[in-house]
Simulated assay, not measured.
Amino acid sequence: MDLQKRPEPTAPASVKPAELRASDADRDRITDILRDALAEGRLTAEEHSERVEGVLATKTVGELDQFVRDLPVAHGPRATPAYSIAPNRPTAGAIPLEPDDNVVAVFSAAVRKGRWRAGRRIHAYAVFGSVEIDLSEAIFEYPQVVIRAISVFGSVDIRVPENVSLRGSGAGVLGSFEVKTLDGGDTGAPVVYVDGLAVLGSVEAKPKRGKLIADILDRVTGRVSERLDKSLRKHLDR
């Protein structure tokens, strides 16, 4: 009996590095370069904002280079590879070094406010519920904070200090997605980006009047100084 010869499997086509999907680390590397270019005066605040928004929406590694092509760093020797290699999967029970911050409300309410540390990426999900993210007194550890807000029959309210930059792009499907654009006066102030989707719900991001990062730092510094003075007086009275 003759056996039909099966076709030999073809080798998968090789993917060029520029065609690889961009990771968060790849985007962070480019946004850091753009931040330095802004501080050096090579980019205006408007150009910086437009390019960072483009970086966050980029899909592949090759597309990232277009945002720094006209900057000196793009024509010098690379200190880091053009793309980052995905690390090995963590073992069971391992804690990631930089996890995303998730704020979830399903038929309930979730609030993140007060003196808390804002991560690089925050995910807010409101499903038949409400989420409130108040950054007016938060500690910013990163120059850019990205908030992904999804609202389905719910609401996501985001408040930021007056002296940060606020950007956003999203969509509303029988709902409202509103981000009040804000340009921080200080080039070193953090930039908050809000994107996402509102389906029969609402997403709103705007500054909180009377709240400034500098004021918060002054109050904290004043409290620390006051405590040191009290401790010193107690020591001298002994």
Score class of each variant (00 low, 15 high):
V55C: 00
A138I: 07
R51Y: 06
S108Q: 05
G175Q: 04
G170L: 01
R21W: 08
E141D: 15
V194D: 00
G119M: 10
V146P: 03
D157H: 13
A11V: 15
G222F: 06
P161E: 07
G62D: 12
P99A: 04
Y193L: 10
K211Y: 05
A110G: 01
R35Y: 08
G93V: 00
Q66L: 15
G210L: 08
F128W: 05
I150F: 13
I158W: 08
G168T: 04
A94T: 08
D28L: 02
L217F: 13
A39G: 02
Y125N: 07
R21F: 08
G119T: 12
T44R: 04
K211H: 09
I33L: 08
T187S: 12
I95L: 13
D70N: 07
R167I: 13
E46C: 01
D134M: 04
G41V: 12
G185I: 11
E19L: 08
V199N: 03
R233M: 01
R219M: 13
R227H: 11
S225F: 14
G54L: 12
L43R: 11
L236N: 06
I213A: 10
G172N: 10
I95P: 02
I33V: 10
R21N: 09
I85F: 09
T60Q: 15
D195R: 12
L200S: 14
R238L: 08
T80P: 02
D36G: 00
P143K: 03
A94F: 03
G54N: 12
S155F: 03
S165F: 02
L182F: 03
V179L: 05
V104D: 09
L34D: 06
R121P: 00
L71N: 01
R51L: 03
S49F: 11
L38A: 09
A11C: 05
V179Q: 05
F128Y: 11
L174S: 05
V192Y: 04
V156Q: 01
V145P: 12
V192D: 03
L135S: 03
A198R: 04
H123S: 08
L135N: 00
V104M: 07
